[in-house]
C-alpha cells in the first residue's frame, strides 16, 4: 500500500467555548481520492484550514510525507506548504487579474521574487504551464479574460487550475464543485480522480453530493458535529451512514 502523504491525528479546535473539532484524525495516501461528507457547520472547512495552517488547532498533529508541520524549520515548512495545495470554498482569486495570471500565481513558489512583481515578468514556461492547467479545466479559451468577468462556476474551475499549477503532492478541495453544473461537476471530479489515480497525488475533497462522492472517491469520511462519524471505503458506505450524518439537522429544521 502507498504511504500516507497527509496524516492527521487528534485534531481539536474550539472557537470561544464552542467546540468545533473533537479528535479528528485520518490519512490520505498517494494515489487516493478521499471525500469529506457532513452537514453544514460540522467542521469540514475548519479541518482543512487547520491542515493548511490557516487556523491554529488547539491540539493535534498534521504531518505531510511523515514530517510534523509544527516541528519543521521555516524553509522546510515553506516547501511543505508548496507541496500542499488548497482549493478554497470562497475561491479567493483576484478579480481584476486575468484567469491566466491567477493560475500563474499558484506557481509563485517556483518563480524568483524579482520576476513575480508583475505578470508581465512571469517566465514563459510558467505561463505555458498555466495555460495547460486552464485547458485541463476546459477554460483555455478564456485565459485572457478577467476573472471578475467569468461566471461563478468558471471562477471555481480557475481556482482548481491554480491549484494544479502549484504542482502539489497533496490537494485539498473545499466544495470544488458546489457552483458547477452537473456536467462541469463530473468533469472536475474526473480530474481530481485522475490526479489521484494516474498522477499519484493525495486528494481530499469536501462534497455536499453523496452520490458524486460514492461514484468518484475511494474512501469517504463523515464528520458529525466535529467528530469522526465514519471513515470507510466508498463501497461500504450505505444509506444508514448518510442518514446519520444529515438527519440531526433535518430534525432541528423540522
Amino acid at each position: 500500500m502507498d504511504p500516507a502523504l497527509l496524516s492527521v491525528r487528534g485534531l481539536r479546535k474550539s472557537f470561544g467555548n464552542r467546540p468545533v473539532l473533537n479528535n479528528v484524525g485520518f490519512d490520505v495516501r498517494a494515489g487516493e481520492l478521499v471525500a469529506f461528507l457532513g452537514a453544514n457547520g460540522s467542521g469540514k472547512s475548519t479541518t482543512l484550514r487547520c491542515v493548511m495552517g490557516i487556523a491554529q488547532p488547539d491540539a493535534g498533529v498534521v504531518a505531510v510525507d511523515g514530517d510534523d508541520l509544527a516541528k519543521l524549520p521555516w524553509r522546510q515548512l515553506q516547501e511543505a506548504r508548496r507541496r500542499t495545495a488548497m482549493i478554497f470554498q470562497k475561491i479567493h482569486l483576484v478579480p481584476r487579474r486575468t484567469a491566466l495570471d491567477n493560475v500563474c500565481a499558484g506557481a509563485l513558489a517556483r518563480i524568483p521574487t524579482g520576476r513575480s512583481l508583475s505578470p508581465l515578468f512571469f517566465p514563459r514556461s510558467i505561463q505555458l504551464e498555466a495555460l495547460d492547467c486552464l485547458d485541463r479545466v476546459g477554460l483555455a479559451d478564456r485565459a485572457f479574460e478577467r476573472v471578475g468577468r467569468l461566471s461563478g462556476g468558471q471562477q471555481q474551475r480557475v481556482a482548481v487550475a491554480r491549484a494544479l499549477c502549484q504542482r502539489a503532492d497533496v490537494v485539498l478541495a473545499d466544495e470544488p464543485v458546489s457552483a458547477l453544473d452537473p456536467h462541469a461537476a463530473d468533469q472536475v471530479m474526473a480530474l481530481l480522480h485522475h490526479l489521484a489515480h494516474v498522477e499519484k497525488l493525495a486528494v481530499a475533497a469536501v462534497l455536499h453530493q453523496p452520490d458524486l462522492a460514492l461514484r468518484h472517491a475511494d474512501r469517504c469520511i463523515g464528520l458529525l458535529h466535529g467528530t469522526m462519524a465514519f471513515d470507510l471505503p466508498s463501497s461500504d458506505v450505505g444509506p444508514v451512514h448518510l442518514d446519520a450524518l444529515y438527519a440531526p439537522d433535518r430534525v432541528a429544521a423540522a
Binding site: 495545495a85 478554497f88 500565481a105 509563485l108 521574487t113 491554480r162 502549484q166
Partner: peptide
C-alpha cells in the same frame, strides 16, 4: 491563498 501556496510576503 497565495501564502498557503508557498509564495513569500513580497
Amino acid at each position: 491563498a497565495l501564502r498557503t501556496a508557498g509564495a513569500n510576503r513580497i
